[in-house]
Computed example of a mutant assay.
Amino acid sequence: MPADAFFTSLVADRGHKAIAVVLSGADGDGSLGLKAIKEAGGVTFAQCEDTAKFDSMPNTADGFSLIRQVRALKAEAGGQIPAAAITAYATEQERQRAIDAGFQMHLAKPIDLTQLVLMIANLTG
């Protein structure tokens, strides 16, 4: 699954410094990648399906607020970590909203593996 591939490559690149946030309902996509991050000593956050109004649109978490909080940190505290918004919203306005919030990249779902690999390569240099 694309999220597992992303998280697995994130932990390979960042090790114990990896941070992953999964905002979803009941979909299991990402669980293997989250496990890899935890095993490496990284930090993971996942929204449980009980708090999501819809599987694809959680109502209690906001990735834009999260990235703004991260970007407010000093660089040595992780404030400049690579970040991409992966969302179901594909409009130019939503792409710009993600960039303005502090994400370096924006990808709209569905994402194929090639797009994901290119995004990771661009973010990690």
Rank of each mutant, 00 (worst) to 15 (best):
residue 1 M to E: 02
residue 3 A to T: 15
residue 4 D to T: 07
residue 7 F to H: 09
residue 8 T to Q: 13
residue 9 S to N: 11
residue 12 A to R: 15
residue 13 D to W: 04
residue 16 H to S: 15
residue 17 K to P: 09
residue 19 I to A: 10
residue 19 I to M: 11
residue 20 A to T: 13
residue 21 V to H: 03
residue 22 V to A: 04
residue 23 L to T: 01
residue 23 L to G: 09
residue 24 S to C: 07
residue 25 G to W: 02
residue 26 A to I: 12
residue 26 A to Q: 06
residue 27 D to C: 11
residue 30 G to H: 05
residue 32 L to I: 11
residue 37 I to R: 14
residue 38 K to L: 10
residue 39 E to P: 13
residue 40 A to V: 15
residue 43 V to D: 08
residue 44 T to D: 03
residue 45 F to I: 13
residue 45 F to H: 15
residue 46 A to R: 15
residue 46 A to V: 13
residue 47 Q to V: 14
residue 49 E to I: 07
residue 50 D to L: 04
residue 51 T to P: 07
residue 53 K to H: 05
residue 53 K to W: 01
residue 56 S to C: 11
residue 59 N to D: 02
residue 59 N to E: 01
residue 59 N to S: 13
residue 60 T to D: 00
residue 62 D to C: 15
residue 63 G to N: 05
residue 64 F to W: 01
residue 64 F to V: 08
residue 64 F to T: 12
residue 65 S to G: 11
residue 65 S to H: 07
residue 67 I to W: 06
residue 67 I to E: 03
residue 68 R to S: 09
residue 69 Q to C: 10
residue 69 Q to S: 12
residue 69 Q to F: 06
residue 70 V to M: 13
residue 70 V to Q: 08
residue 71 R to F: 08
residue 73 L to H: 12
residue 74 K to E: 05
residue 74 K to P: 14
residue 76 E to C: 10
residue 76 E to M: 10
residue 76 E to T: 12
residue 78 G to M: 04
residue 78 G to Y: 06
residue 79 G to W: 04
residue 81 I to W: 03
residue 82 P to H: 01
residue 83 A to C: 15
residue 84 A to G: 15
residue 87 T to C: 09
residue 87 T to L: 05
residue 88 A to W: 13
residue 89 Y to L: 13
residue 90 A to H: 12
residue 90 A to S: 12
residue 91 T to L: 01
residue 92 E to N: 10
residue 94 E to R: 13
residue 94 E to K: 14
residue 95 R to F: 00
residue 97 R to F: 02
residue 98 A to Q: 06
residue 99 I to A: 07
residue 100 D to I: 01
residue 102 G to W: 07
residue 103 F to G: 09
residue 103 F to A: 03
residue 104 Q to S: 13
residue 105 M to W: 02
residue 106 H to S: 10
residue 107 L to K: 06
residue 108 A to D: 05
residue 109 K to L: 06
residue 110 P to S: 00
residue 111 I to P: 08
residue 111 I to M: 09
residue 113 L to Y: 02
residue 114 T to K: 08
residue 114 T to E: 00
residue 115 Q to M: 10
residue 117 V to L: 01
residue 117 V to E: 00
residue 119 M to Y: 03
residue 119 M to H: 11
residue 120 I to V: 07
residue 121 A to C: 04
residue 121 A to M: 05
residue 121 A to E: 06
residue 122 N to D: 00
residue 122 N to K: 11
residue 123 L to W: 00
residue 125 G to S: 02
